[in-house]
Amino acid sequence: MNTSEAIVLVRRCVHEVAPDIDMESISDDAHLQETLHLDSLDFLQVVELLSSRSGIRIDEEDYPRLATIASAAAFLAQH
């Protein structure tokens, strides 16, 4: 997966968990928890979707690297 594919995947997963957010208006730097107000359950759901769709194992230690859409995409693209 390259970075732009990863960005699409992250955006899609966030949209599925929080369909009320208008993803068009959100930049890649948006902080999932602080800016988009995903709570810990929402965040866990996003992680679950990312992991199952990408097939990449995501450990708790990796959570900080998933803070924004861009950093999450960079994480996925590296694996």
Binding site: S40, L44, D59
Partner: peptide
């Protein structure tokens, strides 16, 4: 929790809540 979650797939991980 961390020890428990290490062995679990994301869908089964436990939150502090």
């Amino acid at each position: 929790l961390h020890e428990q979650n290490r062995a679990l797939p994301v869908a089964q991980r436990i939150l502090p809540a």
